[in-house]
Amino acid sequence: MSSASGRGRSVRTRPPTILVALAALGAVFFLIPLAGLLKQTPWSDLPELLTSDVVLDALRLSLISSIAAALISLIFGVPLAWLLARVDFPGRRFVRAVVTLPMVLPPVVGGAALLFALGRRGLVGGPIYDSTGFLLPFSLWGVIVANTFVAMPFLVVTVEAAFASIDQRYEAAAASLGASRLTVFRRVTLPMIGPSLAGGLVLTWARALGEFGATATFAGNLQGRTQTLPLAVFVGLESDRGAAIAISLVLVAISMLVLVGLRDRWWGQR
């Protein structure tokens, strides 16, 4: 679709050298740590390391918790984003600030806050524990909650911007055709923000996959129950560096696969 192709002779303009040089440095800045990781990789031991219980357990927990966090973010984050973008209620600025807070807060602080709120002596967790015995910390649910807490703001921010930027007259048009507000939302609004929603969802999932601080603080660290890939890396770096590097490679591989595969397809559509 680019204007250069299709009509006439394509003319190559030389990009400014200074921009190319700075861009190249920027790219190298991201490549070097990756190279460092690859150089340290014990390639011959890799198959054995990757199929060890620690890695397989962490991989399973990471996939379950990050996907669950992305889905929960979808269910609650989209309506929240819609509310923030469209409904002018008192305290909206405050709510928006609170929702985006986990993006700037150190995750450890978020984890501590979750513990004080949802732990068994917490503000909300206390009464729940006392009446039902249900406990979030030190369980997979705790990991999912920590992941969601840290990752959902990415979905809300992306989707809110999309809700705010689409032409609302399309919704008026749908309403005039007899569509109820929910039908308008489902058949017109949601499809219109589709690309942003997909992009936001990938971002949210990726953030959940890499979550460390809040998970360690809120959900603890136990192999097979709460130890996700990043936690396994942290523990491994100080005791078994080979395993830690192997796990890091797994994280890099999964993330690259998704980002390369989906980014162009979804975000490129805009």
Partner: peptide, 21 residues
């Protein structure tokens, strides 16, 4: 009576056709 219950047909200035349908 809200818009969706008025039984109107509206042709807008730039038509506002739903591009995703």
């Amino acid at each position: 009576v809200p818009s969706e219950d008025r039984h109107l047909g509206i042709v807008f200035q730039d038509y506002l056709l739903f591009d995703h349908l």
